[in-house]
Every structure is written in C-alpha cells, then in structure tokens.
Write a protein that binds this DNA or RNA. Sequence first.
DNA 1: GCGGTTTCCGTACGGTCGTGCTTTTATGAA
DNA 2: TTCATAAAAGCACGACCGTACGGAAACCGC
Lengths: 187, 187
Amino acid sequence: MLDHAVEVARRVGLSGLTIGTLAEQAELSKSGLFGHFRSKEALQLQVLEHARTRFEESVARPALRAPRGEPRLRALFDRWLDWDAVPGGCPFVAAATEFDDRPGAVRDRLVQDQRDMFDMIATVFRTGVAERQFRAEADPDQFAQDLYGVLLARHHTLRLLGDERADARARHAFDALIGAVRIKPSD
Amino acid sequence: MLDHAVEVARRVGLSGLTIGTLAEQAELSKSGLFGHFRSKEALQLQVLEHARTRFEESVARPALRAPRGEPRLRALFDRWLDWDAVPGGCPFVAAATEFDDRPGAVRDRLVQDQRDMFDMIATVFRTGVAERQFRAEADPDQFAQDLYGVLLARHHTLRLLGDERADARARHAFDALIGAVRIKPSD
DNA sequence: GCGGTTTCCGTACGGTCGTGCTTTTATGAA
DNA sequence: TTCATAAAAGCACGACCGTACGGAAACCGC
C-alpha cells in the first residue's frame, strides 16, 4: 500500500497524491482508505517515512557495509545513482522543491530527512579522513553539498533531458571530487 | 500580470498556479482573466516564456558583457546566485521537477529551455578555451552539468535547510571547478 | 457463542478546479 | 455619434478534492 503510494508520489508529487485515485488503485473505497490515515497530511508524512526507510534499506545501509573511505563513498554513490534512476525519480527531490516554501509538518519532516542525509555523507567522509585516505583539511560539509550537487545535476539532466551521457558525467564529476581530497602517495 | 504569475509559480509551482487565485490577485473576475489565456496550459506556457525572458535579461545577457573566459563565467555564476535567491527560488527548477514525468507542451518547452541553458554555459566555456584560459581537453558539456550541479545543490541547501553557508560552499565549489580547467602559467 | 473493537463502505457536504456560454461594458475608427 | 470590436463580468456545469458520519462486516479475546 505505502509502497505504491511512494511510487505515485514520485511521479505526481506529495500534493498531487490524491486520496481518491490512491483508493481506487488499492481497490478500496475512498473513505475506506481515508480511515487508515486520518488526514491527507498524515498520509504525506507516512509516505515520506516509508520512502526514507526504503532509502536506508537500499542505499545507506548496504553502502555502510563497504570498507571505510573511498570504497564506502563509491558504494554510496553507485547505489544512489540506482535509487534516483527508478521511474519517477527520487521522491525527496520532488518533495523538497515542492515544499521548500510551504511551512508545516511535511516541510519540517523533509528538512530533518535532508539534514540527516547531509550528515550521513559528511560522516562517511570523516571516517575516510580518520583512515588517512582523505585530506584532514577538507570540509566534510562542503563535500556533502558537492556530492549532492553531482547527484542533483544528474537527476535533472537524465530525467528532464533524457540525456544518457548524464551518468558518465556524474561519475566523472564524482572522480574529480574524490581526486581533489584524496591523499596521494606523493604526499 | 505575467510578472506576478511568475512570482506565484515560483512558490506553488506551475500546477499549483490556479486561475481563480490569480484572478483575484489581479482584481479581475475568473472568467475575465481566463479570457486572456485560452487554457491553463497556455497560461503555463506564457509564464514559462516570461520567466525565460527575465532570466535572459537579468542573468544571461549582462554576463555576456563581461570579458571572455573566467570573468564571464564568474559574472554568469554570480548573477545566477542572485536569480536563484529570490523568494520562491528559480521557477525552472520547480517546474522541471514537477513536469519531468508529465508529457505535454509544457514539458517540451521546459526541455528546450533547459537544453538552451546548458548550451549557453557550454558556449561561454568554449570561448574561454578559445582564449586559451581553459584547457582544450576539458569537455564543455561536462562543465555545464558540473556548474549546474553546484547551483542546484546551493538552491536546495539554501531554500530547504536555510543554511547560510550554502553560498560560501557554492563559491568554493565554483572555484574548484574553474581551478580544475584553468591553464596555469606553469603549463 | 458473545460483545467489543477494528475495518471498510455508502453517502453526503462544502469547496475549488478548469472551462464553456451569454451579457454587459469599454474602446476606438468612421 | 455611431457602430464594430474587444475586454471583462456573471453564471453555470461537471468533476474532483478532503473530510465527516453512520452502518455493515469481519475479527478476536473471552
């Protein structure tokens, strides 16, 4: 149920998500489905929470099983590319641009998710610093924003323009990002 | 009128743009305003076109008056930061994530605008190559996607998280991008 | 088997949406 | 001043929205 709702929200956004259409796709009456959530906002929040769980399952957690430092970062990046590439794209990207101007519980939740995500990238980067793979002077938060930029640009280019080369460019940009912070043998 | 419509579309998106609310803000009757455009889609297209004109006026054209190469690129970047920073953010970013999954005239128009924008960046970069400021091996399309990523990440971080440091990080990323392609005196 | 609780349905409400029609009002050329 | 044309208003429509309420059906501990 929620799985399907997340799928729909990818395509039409969290506001485009309508109880009526959702109900008939679930082969339920409108009021039947409405009973499960007690309001539309609660539905949106649950969709968000479910999407987050799925992201952690298929992107974050598996990546954290890779060896620290560059391999872990690379695993994270690769899985993230897959996550973004599903039909409809990343639900958080859609929701974020939708709600960045609408105060409320949904926005608050979104902010927290986004913040956690940035922290996660920064943390993964920091363990790479601790392993002496990345330069200690490099700013983890800067790296997080940079990495997210690579993902966003690829998301945009691939989904709107349908440009297949977006992936190759994203990988190239990722390599450049890593190359800039990697400690080389010569150092 | 269209100015105001663009302003509203920034906040609520192109689909969130409703003829009713737009009419009462223009102190017109709903049907009075509707007469100007002949459909909602036509309204959306005109909003898009108007936004593009404004972008060219306040970002693209002024930047093209700066000296070729790095100064021009930097002028473009600086003006773009201002453009994205207005309340509601960039209307194209909002519209693109909204319509990247909905075929139709609006999406087609959006694709063309986005493509033109990428071409513009690549062209500015190429003149820098011709001026022997940037490496000839650097791929202009790669640079365009990279630059747009920096802008998108900043847009996201600033608007959703309200993080003031987003700007500084974007400038840092821009400098790194330029630094990677700049021809140094030692070469 | 019984009674209470949950799940689902049917129906209805007020509201807004985009969009047609018809009528009124304003404009500007002859 | 008159008259064709354009702009705006008024009104109605069908559709869909989120939400509330009451009843039916299913389930479950006892």
